[in-house]
Design a protein around this nucleic acid. Sequence first.
DNA 1: AATTTCTCCAACCGCATCCTT
DNA 2: AAAGGATGCGGTTGGAGAAAT
Length: 326
Amino acid sequence: MHHKKPNISEEEMGRSPCCDENNLKKGPWTPEEDQKLTDHIQKHGHGSWRALPKLAGLKRCGKSCRLRWTNYLRPDIKRGKFSEEEENTILHLHSVLGNKWSAIAAHLPGRTDNEIKNYWNTHLKKRLIQMGIDPITHQPKTDLFTCLPQLIALANLKELLEHTQLTHNLQYFNLLQQPGIVANNPELNATNLMPTNQEPNPYFSNIFQQELGQGRVEMSNLFPVENASIGGGGSQPLQQQQVVPFMNVKTSDDHEVVGQCQMSDKSSSSSTWNPLPPLMDTSGSNSQENSSYGGGSGGAGGASLYNWPDFLFEDSFLDENLKEMC
DNA sequence: AATTTCTCCAACCGCATCCTT
DNA sequence: AAAGGATGCGGTTGGAGAAAT
C-alpha cells in the first residue's frame, strides 16, 4: 500500500520529522549510549522502537536506535573481512536479486544489509566495472561506448608497439651499416632485417596482428576478461595464463608496457601472441581481497581478478588518443 | 612534516510497505 | 476500504582515517 505524500509539510500536519523533535541527538553513538541501548534491549527486548528511547533513557529517535542495534550492537553480528565464499554469495545473489540488500543479507548469517550494501559499493561493484562487467546486469559490457576506453587503450598500444618495432628495425639497420657486421655474421639477412635463424616476431606474424591491420578485430578476442564467469554460468573462469615476457616499452610519462606471449593451453604446442598488456591483479595486497568469481556453483575456483593497468585509462592518456580519433 | 586527496563505512533521510484500527 | 502510525529498505552523505603528494 502506497500513501501519496500530502502537499502540506509534516510540520504543518503537527508532526515533525524523526529526530528533529525534542532536540534529539544525531550522529555517531557514544559508548555510554551503546551501553544503555544494549542493556535495555537485553532486559526488555526492543518492543516498540518508537517508545524505546524514552524507556532506555536515550535522546535518540527510535529509528536511530533500531539502526544502531541491527547494524552494530546485535550480539550475532559478524565482523571483519568478507570471506571469498561470502563474496561469491553476494555476487551470485546480486545477479539474481539486484539491490535487494536485505534479501541478500538473509543468506549471509551475521551480516547486515547495510554492511553488504557498503561492501558492494566500495569493492565488488568497482571490481566488476574494472573487469568490464556491467554491475547491474552482470553481463560483459559489449556496447561501443562502454568499451571505448578499452578500444582507445588498444589503439594506443598498437601504435606503441609499431613505434617500438620501427625503432627496433632502425637500430638493427644501423647495426648492419657498420663495416664488417654482415660479413662476419652470415646468419644476418639484410634484406628483411631479421636474423634468419630467429623466430619471426610473433607480433608481426599472428592472426591478431593481421586483424588489427585490417581493422576487423573480434571483440571476443580483445577482452579475455569476458571469459570470467560468475556463479558458474557455464563459461570458463578467467585464469592466469602462463606468461612469457616479450618486450618492454615505455610511454611518454614513463609507464612501462609489457607485451607478452601467452601459452594458451598447456596441451597445445602452439603459442599465441597477445599484444594486450598483461592483466594485473588489482585486488590489493591484502590476501583477503584476492577473490574468485569462478568458484561459486561452478566450483572451478582459484581464479584471481586481473585487469589492465590503470594508466591505460588515465585522463591524459585517453585525452590524447581521443583527440586523434575525433 | 604539512597538506591534499582518496577511501570507506556508520548513520541519516525519505520513500515503501506493513500493520492496526 | 481507508487512514495513519510503525517499521523496513535502499540511496546517499559526512567525516574519520589512510594514502598520496
